[in-house]
Design a protein around this nucleic acid. Sequence first.
DNA 1: CAAGAAAGAGAGCACTGCTCTTGCTTTCGC
DNA 2: GCGAAAGCAAGAGCAGTGCTCTCTTTCTTG
Lengths: 241, 241
Amino acid sequence: MSVIQGARERARTEVTAAIKQEARNQLAAEGAARLSLRAVARELGMVSSALYRYFPSRDELFTALIIDAYDAIGAAAEEALAATAGEPPADRWTAVCRAARDWAIAHPHEYGLVYGSPVPGYSAPQDTVVPASRVGLALVAVVRDAQRDGLLGPPQGRPLAEPVRTDAAHLASELAPDLPIPTIAALVAAWAQVFGIVSFEVFGQFNGVVEARGPFFDQAAGALGAQVGLPTPAETPAPER
Amino acid sequence: MSVIQGARERARTEVTAAIKQEARNQLAAEGAARLSLRAVARELGMVSSALYRYFPSRDELFTALIIDAYDAIGAAAEEALAATAGEPPADRWTAVCRAARDWAIAHPHEYGLVYGSPVPGYSAPQDTVVPASRVGLALVAVVRDAQRDGLLGPPQGRPLAEPVRTDAAHLASELAPDLPIPTIAALVAAWAQVFGIVSFEVFGQFNGVVEARGPFFDQAAGALGAQVGLPTPAETPAPER
DNA sequence: CAAGAAAGAGAGCACTGCTCTTGCTTTCGC
DNA sequence: GCGAAAGCAAGAGCAGTGCTCTCTTTCTTG
Protein backbone atom coordinates (compact mmCIF):
# COMPACT_ATOMS: atom_id res chain seq x y z
CA MET A 1 0.00 0.00 0.00
CA SER A 2 1.85 3.05 -1.19
CA VAL A 3 0.96 6.23 0.57
CA ILE A 4 1.66 8.30 -2.49
CA GLN A 5 -0.62 7.58 -5.40
CA GLY A 6 -1.57 8.99 -8.74
CA ALA A 7 -4.19 11.65 -9.07
CA ARG A 8 -6.61 9.18 -10.56
CA GLU A 9 -6.28 6.69 -7.75
CA ARG A 10 -6.54 9.41 -5.16
CA ALA A 11 -9.70 10.73 -6.77
CA ARG A 12 -11.10 7.25 -6.79
CA THR A 13 -10.64 6.73 -3.07
CA GLU A 14 -12.08 10.14 -2.40
CA VAL A 15 -15.19 9.53 -4.48
CA THR A 16 -15.58 6.10 -2.94
CA ALA A 17 -15.46 7.63 0.52
CA ALA A 18 -17.93 10.33 -0.48
CA ILE A 19 -20.36 7.74 -1.78
CA LYS A 20 -20.14 5.76 1.42
CA GLN A 21 -20.55 8.86 3.51
CA GLU A 22 -23.63 9.99 1.62
CA ALA A 23 -25.01 6.47 1.82
CA ARG A 24 -24.51 6.57 5.58
CA ASN A 25 -26.37 9.85 5.73
CA GLN A 26 -29.32 8.41 3.88
CA LEU A 27 -29.12 5.31 6.02
CA ALA A 28 -29.43 7.40 9.14
CA ALA A 29 -32.22 9.47 7.66
CA GLU A 30 -34.34 6.84 5.96
CA GLY A 31 -33.17 3.40 7.00
CA ALA A 32 -31.54 0.65 5.03
CA ALA A 33 -34.66 -0.32 3.13
CA ARG A 34 -35.10 3.12 1.64
CA LEU A 35 -31.48 3.68 0.74
CA SER A 36 -31.39 4.40 -2.99
CA LEU A 37 -28.37 4.40 -5.26
CA ARG A 38 -29.96 6.99 -7.48
CA ALA A 39 -30.60 9.31 -4.57
CA VAL A 40 -27.00 8.96 -3.44
CA ALA A 41 -25.76 9.75 -6.93
CA ARG A 42 -28.15 12.67 -7.22
CA GLU A 43 -26.95 14.15 -3.95
CA LEU A 44 -23.37 13.82 -5.12
CA GLY A 45 -24.10 15.55 -8.41
CA MET A 46 -23.35 12.53 -10.52
CA VAL A 47 -25.50 10.32 -12.67
CA SER A 48 -26.58 6.98 -11.27
CA SER A 49 -24.71 4.88 -13.81
CA ALA A 50 -21.43 6.53 -12.86
CA LEU A 51 -21.80 5.13 -9.38
CA TYR A 52 -21.40 1.63 -10.73
CA ARG A 53 -17.76 2.39 -11.45
CA TYR A 54 -17.26 2.33 -7.69
CA PHE A 55 -19.67 -0.30 -6.49
CA PRO A 56 -20.78 -3.06 -8.83
CA SER A 57 -24.18 -3.30 -7.16
CA ARG A 58 -26.30 -2.02 -4.34
CA ASP A 59 -25.49 -5.08 -2.30
CA GLU A 60 -21.77 -4.39 -2.68
CA LEU A 61 -22.33 -0.91 -1.32
CA PHE A 62 -24.13 -2.46 1.59
CA THR A 63 -21.29 -4.86 2.16
CA ALA A 64 -18.84 -1.97 2.25
CA LEU A 65 -21.02 -0.16 4.77
CA ILE A 66 -21.29 -3.31 6.84
CA ILE A 67 -17.53 -3.71 6.98
CA ASP A 68 -17.12 -0.08 7.95
CA ALA A 69 -19.72 -0.43 10.67
CA TYR A 70 -18.06 -3.53 12.08
CA ASP A 71 -14.78 -1.68 12.07
CA ALA A 72 -16.27 1.37 13.72
CA ILE A 73 -17.94 -0.47 16.58
CA GLY A 74 -14.85 -2.65 16.92
CA ALA A 75 -12.64 0.41 17.09
CA ALA A 76 -14.85 1.90 19.78
CA ALA A 77 -14.52 -1.26 21.83
CA GLU A 78 -10.78 -1.43 21.34
CA GLU A 79 -10.41 2.16 22.33
CA ALA A 80 -12.18 1.47 25.60
CA LEU A 81 -9.95 -1.54 26.05
CA ALA A 82 -6.80 0.49 25.64
CA ALA A 83 -8.06 3.39 27.72
CA THR A 84 -8.75 1.18 30.73
CA ALA A 85 -5.48 -0.76 30.77
CA GLY A 86 -4.51 -1.45 34.36
CA GLU A 87 -7.95 -0.91 35.84
CA PRO A 88 -9.88 -3.72 37.54
CA PRO A 89 -11.03 -6.28 34.99
CA ALA A 90 -14.71 -5.95 35.85
CA ASP A 91 -14.52 -2.22 35.15
CA ARG A 92 -12.73 -2.82 31.89
CA TRP A 93 -15.33 -5.36 30.86
CA THR A 94 -18.14 -2.95 31.53
CA ALA A 95 -16.27 -0.17 29.74
CA VAL A 96 -15.79 -2.24 26.60
CA CYS A 97 -19.42 -3.33 26.59
CA ARG A 98 -20.51 0.19 27.21
CA ALA A 99 -18.40 1.51 24.34
CA ALA A 100 -20.02 -0.90 21.93
CA ARG A 101 -23.44 -0.03 23.26
CA ASP A 102 -22.86 3.69 23.05
CA TRP A 103 -21.72 3.39 19.47
CA ALA A 104 -24.83 1.40 18.66
CA ILE A 105 -27.10 4.00 20.24
CA ALA A 106 -25.34 6.72 18.29
CA HIS A 107 -25.56 4.85 14.98
CA PRO A 108 -28.74 2.79 15.18
CA HIS A 109 -29.17 2.16 11.49
CA GLU A 110 -25.58 1.15 10.95
CA TYR A 111 -25.90 -1.09 13.96
CA GLY A 112 -29.00 -2.62 12.45
CA LEU A 113 -27.09 -3.26 9.28
CA VAL A 114 -24.63 -5.50 11.06
CA TYR A 115 -26.48 -6.94 14.03
CA GLY A 116 -30.01 -6.86 12.65
CA SER A 117 -31.50 -9.16 10.09
CA PRO A 118 -29.10 -9.64 7.19
CA VAL A 119 -30.47 -7.32 4.49
CA PRO A 120 -28.98 -8.40 1.16
CA GLY A 121 -29.92 -11.76 -0.34
CA TYR A 122 -27.48 -13.58 1.82
CA SER A 123 -24.18 -11.83 1.65
CA ALA A 124 -21.93 -11.41 4.68
CA PRO A 125 -18.98 -12.71 2.69
CA GLN A 126 -15.61 -13.61 4.03
CA ASP A 127 -14.45 -10.00 4.11
CA THR A 128 -16.70 -9.32 7.07
CA VAL A 129 -15.49 -11.98 9.47
CA VAL A 130 -12.36 -10.25 10.70
CA PRO A 131 -13.98 -6.87 11.36
CA ALA A 132 -16.98 -8.66 12.84
CA SER A 133 -14.86 -10.28 15.51
CA ARG A 134 -13.23 -7.13 16.84
CA VAL A 135 -15.68 -6.46 19.65
CA GLY A 136 -15.58 -10.08 20.71
CA LEU A 137 -11.81 -10.06 20.69
CA ALA A 138 -11.76 -6.96 22.86
CA LEU A 139 -13.82 -8.82 25.42
CA VAL A 140 -11.44 -11.75 25.18
CA ALA A 141 -8.54 -9.39 25.76
CA VAL A 142 -10.09 -8.13 28.98
CA VAL A 143 -10.35 -11.67 30.28
CA ARG A 144 -6.87 -12.64 29.13
CA ASP A 145 -5.37 -9.65 30.89
CA ALA A 146 -7.26 -10.56 34.03
CA GLN A 147 -5.91 -14.09 33.78
CA ARG A 148 -2.39 -12.80 33.27
CA ASP A 149 -2.72 -10.68 36.40
CA GLY A 150 -4.11 -13.57 38.41
CA LEU A 151 -7.48 -11.88 38.76
CA LEU A 152 -9.62 -14.39 36.90
CA GLY A 153 -11.91 -16.63 38.87
CA PRO A 154 -13.88 -19.61 37.61
CA PRO A 155 -16.93 -18.88 35.48
CA GLN A 156 -20.38 -19.34 36.95
CA GLY A 157 -22.68 -22.02 35.68
CA ARG A 158 -22.90 -25.75 35.52
CA PRO A 159 -20.24 -28.03 33.99
CA LEU A 160 -20.12 -27.92 30.23
CA ALA A 161 -22.00 -30.39 28.09
CA GLU A 162 -19.63 -32.33 25.89
CA PRO A 163 -20.37 -30.76 22.50
CA VAL A 164 -20.13 -27.32 24.02
CA ARG A 165 -16.78 -28.18 25.52
CA THR A 166 -15.54 -29.39 22.14
CA ASP A 167 -16.50 -26.15 20.44
CA ALA A 168 -14.97 -24.11 23.22
CA ALA A 169 -11.75 -26.12 23.14
CA HIS A 170 -11.50 -25.50 19.43
CA LEU A 171 -11.99 -21.79 19.94
CA ALA A 172 -9.53 -21.72 22.80
CA SER A 173 -6.76 -23.22 20.73
CA GLU A 174 -7.38 -20.58 18.10
CA LEU A 175 -7.62 -17.41 20.07
CA ALA A 176 -6.81 -17.88 23.73
CA PRO A 177 -4.93 -21.05 24.65
CA ASP A 178 -4.19 -19.60 28.05
CA LEU A 179 -7.83 -19.48 29.13
CA PRO A 180 -9.76 -22.38 30.67
CA ILE A 181 -12.31 -24.01 28.38
CA PRO A 182 -15.34 -23.16 30.55
CA THR A 183 -14.25 -19.54 30.56
CA ILE A 184 -14.23 -19.52 26.78
CA ALA A 185 -17.72 -20.97 26.65
CA ALA A 186 -18.98 -18.41 29.14
CA LEU A 187 -17.28 -15.69 27.16
CA VAL A 188 -19.03 -16.60 23.93
CA ALA A 189 -22.37 -16.72 25.68
CA ALA A 190 -21.75 -13.38 27.35
CA TRP A 191 -20.69 -11.88 24.02
CA ALA A 192 -24.01 -12.82 22.43
CA GLN A 193 -25.93 -11.73 25.49
CA VAL A 194 -24.38 -8.29 25.54
CA PHE A 195 -25.57 -7.76 22.01
CA GLY A 196 -28.96 -9.08 22.98
CA ILE A 197 -29.36 -6.20 25.38
CA VAL A 198 -27.94 -3.69 22.92
CA SER A 199 -30.25 -4.90 20.17
CA PHE A 200 -33.32 -4.75 22.38
CA GLU A 201 -32.42 -1.22 23.30
CA VAL A 202 -31.64 -0.05 19.77
CA PHE A 203 -34.55 -1.84 18.13
CA GLY A 204 -37.10 -0.53 20.59
CA GLN A 205 -37.94 -3.72 22.43
CA PHE A 206 -37.38 -1.96 25.74
CA ASN A 207 -39.92 0.76 24.97
CA GLY A 208 -42.28 0.95 27.89
CA VAL A 209 -40.31 -1.71 29.75
CA VAL A 210 -36.93 -0.27 30.64
CA GLU A 211 -36.52 3.46 30.90
CA ALA A 212 -33.18 3.89 32.69
CA ARG A 213 -31.35 2.13 29.93
CA GLY A 214 -27.84 3.23 30.71
CA PRO A 215 -27.87 2.01 34.30
CA PHE A 216 -29.73 -1.10 33.27
CA PHE A 217 -27.11 -1.90 30.69
CA ASP A 218 -24.26 -1.35 33.10
CA GLN A 219 -25.93 -3.57 35.65
CA ALA A 220 -26.45 -6.36 33.14
CA ALA A 221 -22.97 -6.02 31.68
CA GLY A 222 -21.48 -6.19 35.15
CA ALA A 223 -23.42 -9.36 35.87
CA LEU A 224 -22.15 -10.87 32.63
CA GLY A 225 -18.58 -10.03 33.57
CA ALA A 226 -19.07 -11.77 36.89
CA GLN A 227 -20.53 -14.74 35.08
CA VAL A 228 -17.39 -15.04 33.00
CA GLY A 229 -15.26 -15.03 36.12
CA LEU A 230 -14.16 -11.44 36.54
CA PRO A 231 -14.11 -10.52 40.23
CA THR A 232 -16.65 -7.91 41.20
CA PRO A 233 -15.07 -4.70 42.48
CA ALA A 234 -15.86 -5.69 46.06
CA GLU A 235 -13.77 -8.84 45.84
CA THR A 236 -11.03 -7.25 43.79
CA PRO A 237 -7.90 -7.16 45.92
CA ALA A 238 -6.95 -3.82 44.36
CA PRO A 239 -8.03 -0.56 46.03
CA GLU A 240 -10.28 1.83 44.10
CA ARG A 241 -13.46 3.67 44.69
CA MET B 1 -66.86 -11.24 16.50
CA SER B 2 -69.74 -13.21 15.00
CA VAL B 3 -68.83 -16.71 14.01
CA ILE B 4 -71.32 -16.77 11.19
CA GLN B 5 -70.73 -14.26 8.47
CA GLY B 6 -71.81 -13.44 4.97
CA ALA B 7 -70.13 -14.95 1.97
CA ARG B 8 -68.46 -11.68 1.19
CA GLU B 9 -66.98 -11.24 4.61
CA ARG B 10 -65.85 -14.84 4.66
CA ALA B 11 -64.19 -14.40 1.27
CA ARG B 12 -62.48 -11.34 2.58
CA THR B 13 -60.89 -13.09 5.50
CA GLU B 14 -59.89 -15.95 3.25
CA VAL B 15 -58.23 -13.71 0.70
CA THR B 16 -56.55 -11.76 3.47
CA ALA B 17 -55.14 -14.98 4.86
CA ALA B 18 -54.05 -16.13 1.42
CA ILE B 19 -52.21 -12.88 0.83
CA LYS B 20 -50.40 -13.15 4.13
CA GLN B 21 -49.54 -16.77 3.49
CA GLU B 22 -48.13 -16.04 0.06
CA ALA B 23 -46.24 -13.09 1.50
CA ARG B 24 -44.77 -15.42 4.11
CA ASN B 25 -43.70 -17.80 1.38
CA GLN B 26 -41.91 -15.05 -0.49
CA LEU B 27 -40.43 -13.85 2.76
CA ALA B 28 -38.95 -17.27 3.41
CA ALA B 29 -37.73 -17.57 -0.16
CA GLU B 30 -36.35 -14.12 -0.82
CA GLY B 31 -36.16 -12.19 2.41
CA ALA B 32 -38.03 -9.14 3.57
CA ALA B 33 -36.21 -6.72 1.32
CA ARG B 34 -37.22 -8.53 -1.85
CA LEU B 35 -40.85 -9.08 -0.87
CA SER B 36 -42.94 -7.55 -3.63
CA LEU B 37 -46.63 -6.77 -3.54
CA ARG B 38 -46.91 -7.30 -7.27
CA ALA B 39 -45.29 -10.70 -7.06
CA VAL B 40 -47.68 -11.70 -4.29
CA ALA B 41 -50.65 -10.55 -6.35
CA ARG B 42 -49.30 -12.30 -9.43
CA GLU B 43 -48.90 -15.56 -7.58
CA LEU B 44 -52.43 -15.26 -6.32
CA GLY B 45 -53.80 -14.61 -9.80
CA MET B 46 -54.97 -11.13 -9.03
CA VAL B 47 -53.87 -7.76 -10.22
CA SER B 48 -51.69 -5.67 -7.95
CA SER B 49 -54.20 -2.90 -7.44
CA ALA B 50 -56.75 -5.37 -6.10
CA LEU B 51 -54.42 -6.16 -3.27
CA TYR B 52 -54.82 -2.67 -1.93
CA ARG B 53 -58.40 -3.52 -0.98
CA TYR B 54 -56.89 -5.71 1.71
CA PHE B 55 -53.76 -3.88 2.79
CA PRO B 56 -53.52 -0.14 2.30
CA SER B 57 -49.76 -0.28 1.81
CA ARG B 58 -46.78 -2.54 1.79
CA ASP B 59 -45.86 -1.42 5.27
CA GLU B 60 -49.30 -2.43 6.52
CA LEU B 61 -48.77 -5.88 5.09
CA PHE B 62 -45.48 -5.99 6.94
CA THR B 63 -47.15 -4.91 10.13
CA ALA B 64 -49.67 -7.71 9.79
CA LEU B 65 -46.88 -10.20 9.24
CA ILE B 66 -45.03 -8.83 12.23
CA ILE B 67 -48.03 -9.27 14.48
CA ASP B 68 -48.55 -12.80 13.21
CA ALA B 69 -44.90 -13.61 13.83
CA TYR B 70 -45.02 -12.26 17.37
CA ASP B 71 -48.11 -14.32 17.96
CA ALA B 72 -46.57 -17.44 16.50
CA ILE B 73 -43.38 -17.31 18.53
CA GLY B 74 -45.42 -16.33 21.58
CA ALA B 75 -47.74 -19.28 21.05
CA ALA B 76 -44.78 -21.62 20.78
CA ALA B 77 -43.43 -20.33 24.08
CA GLU B 78 -46.80 -20.58 25.79
CA GLU B 79 -47.26 -24.09 24.52
CA ALA B 80 -43.97 -25.11 26.11
CA LEU B 81 -45.07 -23.37 29.28
CA ALA B 82 -48.30 -25.32 29.45
CA ALA B 83 -46.70 -28.61 28.45
CA THR B 84 -44.20 -28.46 31.29
CA ALA B 85 -46.57 -27.52 34.11
CA GLY B 86 -45.43 -29.23 37.28
CA GLU B 87 -41.89 -29.88 36.16
CA PRO B 88 -38.87 -28.30 37.88
CA PRO B 89 -38.74 -24.57 37.14
CA ALA B 90 -35.28 -24.69 35.63
CA ASP B 91 -36.47 -27.26 33.13
CA ARG B 92 -39.53 -25.22 32.30
CA TRP B 93 -37.40 -22.14 31.80
CA THR B 94 -35.13 -23.95 29.39
CA ALA B 95 -38.11 -25.46 27.61
CA VAL B 96 -39.75 -22.09 27.04
CA CYS B 97 -36.49 -20.56 25.82
CA ARG B 98 -35.90 -23.52 23.63
CA ALA B 99 -39.37 -23.31 22.10
CA ALA B 100 -38.81 -19.69 21.14
CA ARG B 101 -35.40 -20.53 19.74
CA ASP B 102 -36.68 -23.49 17.75
CA TRP B 103 -39.41 -21.39 16.22
CA ALA B 104 -36.84 -18.78 15.27
CA ILE B 105 -34.60 -21.34 13.62
CA ALA B 106 -37.56 -22.70 11.70
CA HIS B 107 -38.73 -19.26 10.56
CA PRO B 108 -35.58 -17.17 10.26
CA HIS B 109 -37.01 -14.46 8.04
CA GLU B 110 -40.11 -14.00 10.12
CA TYR B 111 -37.90 -13.88 13.16
CA GLY B 112 -35.78 -11.24 11.49
CA LEU B 113 -38.92 -9.25 10.83
CA VAL B 114 -39.67 -8.93 14.51
CA TYR B 115 -36.33 -9.16 16.29
CA GLY B 116 -34.09 -7.79 13.57
CA SER B 117 -33.73 -4.21 12.51
CA PRO B 118 -37.15 -2.59 12.15
CA VAL B 119 -37.77 -2.65 8.39
CA PRO B 120 -40.51 -0.13 7.61
CA GLY B 121 -39.92 3.57 8.11
CA TYR B 122 -40.52 3.31 11.79
CA SER B 123 -43.67 1.39 12.36
CA ALA B 124 -44.11 -1.04 15.25
CA PRO B 125 -47.36 0.63 16.20
CA GLN B 126 -49.37 -0.01 19.30
CA ASP B 127 -50.95 -3.15 17.85
CA THR B 128 -47.69 -5.00 18.21
CA VAL B 129 -46.98 -4.46 21.88
CA VAL B 130 -49.29 -7.11 23.29
CA PRO B 131 -48.21 -9.91 20.92
CA ALA B 132 -44.62 -8.80 21.37
CA SER B 133 -44.75 -9.43 25.08
CA ARG B 134 -46.00 -13.01 24.96
CA VAL B 135 -42.61 -14.72 25.09
CA GLY B 136 -41.52 -12.47 27.92
CA LEU B 137 -44.70 -13.16 29.83
CA ALA B 138 -44.21 -16.89 29.44
CA LEU B 139 -40.82 -16.52 31.10
CA VAL B 140 -42.43 -14.47 33.85
CA ALA B 141 -44.99 -17.21 34.34
CA VAL B 142 -42.28 -19.79 34.88
CA VAL B 143 -40.76 -17.68 37.60
CA ARG B 144 -44.10 -16.87 39.21
CA ASP B 145 -45.01 -20.54 39.37
CA ALA B 146 -41.64 -21.29 40.94
CA GLN B 147 -42.25 -18.56 43.49
CA ARG B 148 -45.72 -19.93 44.23
CA ASP B 149 -44.22 -23.38 44.84
CA GLY B 150 -41.50 -22.01 47.06
CA LEU B 151 -38.81 -22.93 44.59
CA LEU B 152 -37.50 -19.48 43.78
CA GLY B 153 -34.18 -18.41 45.15
CA PRO B 154 -32.64 -14.94 45.09
CA PRO B 155 -31.27 -13.76 41.75
CA GLN B 156 -27.54 -13.63 41.22
CA GLY B 157 -25.78 -10.34 40.78
CA ARG B 158 -25.01 -7.24 42.71
CA PRO B 159 -27.58 -5.01 44.42
CA LEU B 160 -29.64 -2.97 42.01
CA ALA B 161 -28.70 0.56 41.11
CA GLU B 162 -31.46 2.97 42.06
CA PRO B 163 -32.86 3.81 38.59
CA VAL B 164 -32.92 0.14 37.71
CA ARG B 165 -34.82 -0.64 40.86
CA THR B 166 -37.35 2.06 40.04
CA ASP B 167 -38.00 0.62 36.59
CA ALA B 168 -38.23 -2.88 37.97
CA ALA B 169 -40.63 -1.81 40.71
CA HIS B 170 -42.83 -0.20 38.10
CA LEU B 171 -42.84 -3.35 36.05
CA ALA B 172 -43.46 -5.52 39.08
CA SER B 173 -46.57 -3.61 40.03
CA GLU B 174 -47.88 -4.10 36.52
CA LEU B 175 -47.24 -7.72 35.82
CA ALA B 176 -45.96 -9.58 38.84
CA PRO B 177 -46.51 -7.92 42.22
CA ASP B 178 -45.66 -11.18 43.93
CA LEU B 179 -42.06 -11.26 42.68
CA PRO B 180 -39.11 -9.50 44.34
CA ILE B 181 -37.85 -6.41 42.54
CA PRO B 182 -34.35 -7.79 41.90
CA THR B 183 -35.91 -10.87 40.37
CA ILE B 184 -37.87 -8.72 37.95
CA ALA B 185 -34.73 -6.87 36.92
CA ALA B 186 -32.86 -10.10 36.39
CA LEU B 187 -35.79 -11.43 34.41
CA VAL B 188 -35.81 -8.53 32.00
CA ALA B 189 -32.10 -8.85 31.47
CA ALA B 190 -32.36 -12.58 30.93
CA TRP B 191 -35.21 -12.05 28.48
CA ALA B 192 -33.07 -9.77 26.32
CA GLN B 193 -30.08 -12.06 26.65
CA VAL B 194 -31.98 -15.11 25.48
CA PHE B 195 -32.87 -13.27 22.32
CA GLY B 196 -29.29 -12.18 21.96
CA ILE B 197 -28.25 -15.78 21.64
CA VAL B 198 -31.14 -16.62 19.34
CA SER B 199 -30.39 -13.65 17.11
CA PHE B 200 -26.71 -14.49 16.89
CA GLU B 201 -27.64 -17.99 15.88
CA VAL B 202 -30.29 -17.04 13.35
CA PHE B 203 -28.37 -14.14 11.86
CA GLY B 204 -25.20 -16.14 11.37
CA GLN B 205 -22.98 -14.52 13.97
CA PHE B 206 -22.09 -17.94 15.34
CA ASN B 207 -20.83 -19.18 11.98
CA GLY B 208 -17.38 -20.59 12.53
CA VAL B 209 -17.62 -19.92 16.25
CA VAL B 210 -20.26 -22.18 17.71
CA GLU B 211 -21.15 -25.40 15.93
CA ALA B 212 -23.12 -27.35 18.53
CA ARG B 213 -25.76 -24.69 18.71
CA GLY B 214 -28.52 -26.64 20.36
CA PRO B 215 -26.43 -27.75 23.34
CA PHE B 216 -24.83 -24.34 23.54
CA PHE B 217 -28.21 -22.69 23.68
CA ASP B 218 -29.47 -25.03 26.36
CA GLN B 219 -26.38 -24.42 28.42
CA ALA B 220 -26.72 -20.67 28.17
CA ALA B 221 -30.45 -20.73 28.81
CA GLY B 222 -29.90 -22.86 31.88
CA ALA B 223 -27.34 -20.41 33.17
CA LEU B 224 -29.77 -17.56 32.64
CA GLY B 225 -32.44 -19.40 34.56
CA ALA B 226 -30.04 -19.85 37.45
CA GLN B 227 -29.19 -16.17 37.26
CA VAL B 228 -32.84 -15.30 37.70
CA GLY B 229 -33.05 -17.50 40.78
CA LEU B 230 -34.42 -20.78 39.52
CA PRO B 231 -32.73 -23.64 41.37
CA THR B 232 -30.58 -25.86 39.18
CA PRO B 233 -31.89 -29.43 39.03
CA ALA B 234 -29.22 -30.59 41.48
CA GLU B 235 -30.30 -28.19 44.18
CA THR B 236 -34.01 -28.55 43.57
CA PRO B 237 -35.46 -29.80 46.81
CA ALA B 238 -37.52 -32.93 46.36
CA PRO B 239 -41.13 -31.94 45.74
CA GLU B 240 -42.25 -31.04 49.20
CA ARG B 241 -45.76 -31.18 50.39
C1' DC C 1 -85.93 -5.35 -7.33
C1' DA C 2 -83.22 -1.41 -7.25
C1' DA C 3 -79.75 1.40 -4.72
C1' DG C 4 -75.56 1.01 -2.51
C1' DA C 5 -71.22 -0.88 -1.18
C1' DA C 6 -67.39 -3.80 -2.07
C1' DA C 7 -64.27 -6.00 -5.18
C1' DG C 8 -61.44 -6.61 -9.35
C1' DA C 9 -59.24 -4.91 -13.86
C1' DG C 10 -56.46 -1.94 -16.30
C1' DA C 11 -53.84 2.12 -17.34
C1' DG C 12 -50.63 5.17 -15.68
C1' DC C 13 -47.08 7.87 -12.66
C1' DA C 14 -42.83 8.34 -10.45
C1' DC C 15 -39.36 5.76 -8.89
C1' DT C 16 -35.89 1.94 -8.50
C1' DG C 17 -31.50 -1.18 -9.77
C1' DC C 18 -28.94 -2.11 -13.55
C1' DT C 19 -27.02 -2.39 -18.56
C1' DC C 20 -25.24 -0.62 -22.75
C1' DT C 21 -23.43 2.69 -25.74
C1' DT C 22 -21.10 7.02 -26.56
C1' DG C 23 -17.73 10.39 -25.86
C1' DC C 24 -13.82 12.30 -23.01
C1' DT C 25 -9.58 12.15 -19.99
C1' DT C 26 -5.86 10.11 -17.72
C1' DT C 27 -2.24 6.63 -17.70
C1' DC C 28 1.33 3.94 -19.65
C1' DG C 29 4.34 1.27 -23.08
C1' DC C 30 7.13 2.32 -26.81
C1' DG D 1 6.33 12.51 -27.06
C1' DC D 2 2.71 9.91 -28.75
C1' DG D 3 -0.62 6.53 -29.68
C1' DA D 4 -3.07 2.79 -27.58
C1' DA D 5 -5.33 1.23 -23.65
C1' DA D 6 -7.74 1.79 -19.69
C1' DG D 7 -10.68 4.60 -16.52
C1' DC D 8 -14.49 7.56 -16.09
C1' DA D 9 -18.94 10.14 -16.70
C1' DA D 10 -23.20 10.80 -19.15
C1' DG D 11 -27.45 9.51 -21.30
C1' DA D 12 -30.93 6.45 -22.93
C1' DG D 13 -33.35 2.55 -21.97
C1' DC D 14 -35.31 -1.89 -19.77
C1' DA D 15 -37.82 -4.40 -16.47
C1' DG D 16 -39.55 -4.07 -12.22
C1' DT D 17 -41.58 -1.64 -8.06
C1' DG D 18 -45.32 0.87 -4.82
C1' DC D 19 -49.27 3.27 -5.37
C1' DT D 20 -53.40 5.97 -7.45
C1' DC D 21 -57.18 6.58 -10.39
C1' DT D 22 -60.99 5.29 -13.15
C1' DC D 23 -64.15 1.98 -14.84
C1' DT D 24 -66.76 -2.24 -14.71
C1' DT D 25 -68.66 -6.21 -12.32
C1' DT D 26 -70.47 -8.52 -8.36
C1' DC D 27 -72.68 -9.05 -4.10
C1' DT D 28 -75.51 -7.11 -0.05
C1' DT D 29 -79.29 -4.97 1.70
C1' DG D 30 -83.44 -1.84 2.31
